[in-house]
Design a protein around this nucleic acid. Sequence first.
DNA 1: GACATCTATTCTTATATAGGAATATATAAA
DNA 2: TTTATATATTCCTATATAAGAATAGATGTC
Lengths: 123, 123
Amino acid sequence: MARAATTSDVFNAIAEPRRREIIGLLDDGREWAVGDVVARVKVGQPTVSKHLGVLRKVGVVTMVKRGQHRYYKLQAEPLKAVHDWAKMYERYWTHQINRIKERAEKKAMDRIERENRPKDPKK
Amino acid sequence: MARAATTSDVFNAIAEPRRREIIGLLDDGREWAVGDVVARVKVGQPTVSKHLGVLRKVGVVTMVKRGQHRYYKLQAEPLKAVHDWAKMYERYWTHQINRIKERAEKKAMDRIERENRPKDPKK
DNA sequence: GACATCTATTCTTATATAGGAATATATAAA
DNA sequence: TTTATATATTCCTATATAAGAATAGATGTC
């Protein structure tokens, strides 16, 4: 099997660099017509429409029709899931002092947890 | 073309749910032999070896050989890139009050920027 | 040395795209 | 109504890759 569908997973949606690029463009808070985006990136209109469609399905952008145009607007709330996930590992790159402290805390927590959960992965 | 190779991009590396699962396991700070991971996930040994290989190529885990075993250890520093990227959009999900304030600031900044950069995407 | 165990690699298959070309559709304009 | 414009959709191709099966290679044990 290949990877899970991008339409159902924000992690997959942002894995595509072109989509992160588009998100970056829309971060100015304005509504962007598809053509505005096309004028800024190196891919054609159909490709842009598809990327915007993926972003819409995961809720990262919203769309309104107005006349001939469709305006897309960033609604980045779903990216919180990515932020929160990555934040769990923050101690790995924060200052050395903190890292040592946090690791000690983690070890203590692990020990406590191990005492309450006999099953050990290293059998 | 399909998506960029996972081996060269941490965003792609973490797009695969199974790899996030493995990262979560290794977050206990210990060294995990491949077999330890296999015992915890629902896929076979070759698949686990491949996932660990991808994580190693993007620097999220390190490996040491010891006897018959290969021990993998989480080294989550590269996830900082993901965290930093997502953090750029933090204002979209923080408290309403802050959001309003930040948007006003953003708008002001945009206006200033627009005055110095005549080129506008909405031509 | 013979055999078992641990892990990586190779091969195969199924599936998921990204992107372009062509086309369909909707709306605006003449 | 005819034509132009904006966008989505369909079709196609190339590529990526997840997962399992089989195998290879390394190390440990008898």
